[in-house]
Amino acid sequence: MRTVRLNVSEDGTQSQLVYTDDAPVLSARAGHVLVDVKACGLSPLNHKALVAMNDSNSDLPVGFEISGIVKEIGPEVTSVQVGDAVTGILPLSSECSGCADECEISEFAVVNKPESVNHITAAGAILPGVWAYTALRYQGHITAGDTVLICDGATANGIIAIQLAQRWGAKVMATAANQVEADFLEKLEPSIAAVINMSKTKSLIETCLAETGGLGVDCVIDQGVEMVSSGERYSELVLSSLSHSGEGEVTKRRPITKHDIISILGFGGRWVTSTGQLQLDPPDSQFLFMKGAAVSFLFDNIWVLSGAQQGKYLHIIQDLMEKLQKEELRPTIHHTLMLPDVTSELERLSPHLIGKVVMRT
């Protein structure tokens, strides 16, 4: 069997992606199903989380967002049958990779895939969809009429978040790092209330306050912020981070700072952040306190770390599949590739691509 694994050194400081075509053949344990993988969405590897969830193992899984056909069911499985088309997310502690010919997954971690939704679309939408659904519904508590700012709106996560927020009646603004991303966002239907090109705007704060009549936004969803306090100047930031725009153009990305976000939040605003190492200084906390604002941390794998909220998790995935079937959600697939090409792709995969990269078998 073909598969891709991540080999990590004993001290966790070095890692190497490895492709093999002679991995042991899998079988389904009790409560699990064996899936013939047809597609797997690719995301930049979170090495820290992978090592933390597999601390006694140096051979780690690669690829978690799968769609395929049930090949075998284990004892006690009742929710799916052999031959069913399913999609789901493998846990970080999975013994098998999603980037493989086959993978074993709990029957309670998959849902049936609608026939009209192809495997590439399902695999490309499931993790961005769970990310966006969690941010908007469970942490941002978005309701009709709210104003939402989605940072890096042209990414796979951002695109789905924009569509969900619009579907739920919110006024959506989104940031773009450059003109290529801005052009992409301006062509989305239905149109976004405001596309903020960070390479051209002088001040994110002024732009957002102008768009909201000085009231500020109800919710901000970021995909990483700079650890810059309110007393530091933007000109003092070192713009050393380079990323590919998705059109062959290499551009510097102007960072969004925590001061930007805190300043544009309105009364009772909600800040949903993907920055795990967020540091708030006393002035930052005081500013948030005076606004009655809330900060939530968004980790897209949280639902598969515990079975305590399994019902909500399955509801999210089922609702996403229904929305894909009805074309209420339209993920953007940046490109697809074959299984042997996964190692080289992941080594250079940027989190800022326009859309999603998907492996197909």
Rank of each mutant, 00 (worst) to 15 (best):
Q179T: 09
G276N: 14
T212Q: 11
K258H: 08
E345T: 09
T78N: 00
G68K: 00
A109I: 00
D55L: 01
L34W: 12
C96K: 11
S27N: 07
S296F: 11
I160Y: 02
S97H: 04
T201L: 06
S116P: 00
R254A: 11
C151F: 05
T134G: 13
L164G: 03
G355T: 13
V148E: 13
I196T: 05
T121P: 00
S67G: 07
V70S: 11
D11G: 06
C151W: 07
S94V: 00
L346F: 03
T134H: 12
I333Y: 01
R348F: 01
V342T: 12
M53A: 14
L90A: 07
A154E: 03
A294P: 01
D152E: 10
V295Q: 06
V217N: 09
L90H: 01
T273H: 12
L265T: 13
A174R: 13
R233L: 15
L242W: 07
I160H: 03
F287L: 02
A161I: 10
L188P: 13
D21M: 12
D260R: 08
G140E: 14
G158N: 05
K71V: 02
S9N: 08
V51Q: 15
V18K: 09
E211S: 05
L215M: 10
L164T: 03
Q81C: 13
L314M: 14
K202W: 01
M173F: 13
S199I: 02
Q14G: 00
R253P: 03
V172T: 09
R167N: 06
I192H: 14
L6H: 12
L237P: 02
V35Y: 06
K356T: 07
D341M: 07
V18D: 07
T201G: 02
W271K: 10
S56Q: 11
T13W: 02
A294I: 10
L314V: 12
A174N: 10
W131R: 08
Y133T: 13
I302Y: 14
G129K: 00
L164F: 13
T251E: 00
S94C: 01
D341T: 04
S203G: 11
S116T: 08
V4L: 11
H47V: 12
K326Q: 11
V70Q: 08
Q166F: 03
E104H: 02
V62L: 04
V272P: 13
E107I: 01
N7R: 10
P283D: 02
E249F: 07
L320A: 06
N157K: 07
I262C: 04
S58I: 01
R330S: 15
Q286T: 06
P331L: 01
D11W: 02
V357T: 14
L50S: 10
D218S: 14
I120H: 00
W168L: 04
